[in-house]
Amino acid sequence: MSDMDTALKEMMAVDGALGAAIVDYESGMALGTAGGSKALDLEIAAAGNTEIVRAKQRTLAQLGLQQDIEDILISLSGQYHIIRPLSSRQSHGLFLYLALDRNRANLALARHRLKNIDDQLQI
């Protein structure tokens, strides 16, 4: 079991990590962040990614699909952005966000690490 600060540190320990956040997608606010830069404003990313999660949830509802989102991957020319809604009932309404340098990251390993963080996070 880990807390938010530990989870953010673990996310930043993923090879190629550029920035990490734990976001409340009801409000669009980042509850915690690590890393980031002028080129990667994590507050802006949190708000923007909230819209992506909400849109996908609306689409699933409209399609009548009774499935949960495991993660959403956005592939940019130089980065990967992974959004992972937290699966526990206590953490409902939150998601993990991890931005990675595409040249240094192992995408499969990063997704696996985020799943492990999700499984252990207690908020």
Rank of each mutant, 00 (worst) to 15 (best):
2 S>N: 12
8 L>C: 07
9 K>F: 13
9 K>T: 15
9 K>G: 08
13 A>Q: 13
16 G>E: 11
16 G>D: 11
18 L>D: 12
19 G>F: 11
19 G>Q: 08
20 A>C: 06
21 A>H: 06
21 A>P: 00
22 I>L: 14
25 Y>I: 02
26 E>K: 14
27 S>H: 01
28 G>S: 09
28 G>D: 02
30 A>F: 10
30 A>Y: 03
32 G>H: 06
32 G>L: 08
33 T>P: 00
38 K>Y: 07
40 L>V: 04
42 L>G: 03
43 E>F: 01
44 I>M: 10
45 A>R: 06
45 A>Q: 05
45 A>L: 10
47 A>T: 03
47 A>E: 00
49 N>K: 12
51 E>I: 09
52 I>S: 08
56 K>Q: 10
58 R>I: 10
58 R>M: 10
58 R>Y: 07
58 R>Q: 09
58 R>G: 05
59 T>P: 01
62 Q>Y: 12
70 E>F: 08
73 L>P: 01
75 S>I: 12
82 I>A: 03
82 I>Y: 08
84 R>K: 14
85 P>I: 11
85 P>M: 12
86 L>A: 09
90 Q>P: 00
91 S>M: 11
96 L>M: 05
97 Y>E: 01
98 L>E: 07
98 L>D: 02
102 R>Q: 12
105 A>S: 15
107 L>V: 01
110 A>Q: 14
111 R>W: 00
113 R>T: 12
117 I>E: 08
119 D>G: 01
120 Q>V: 06
122 Q>G: 05
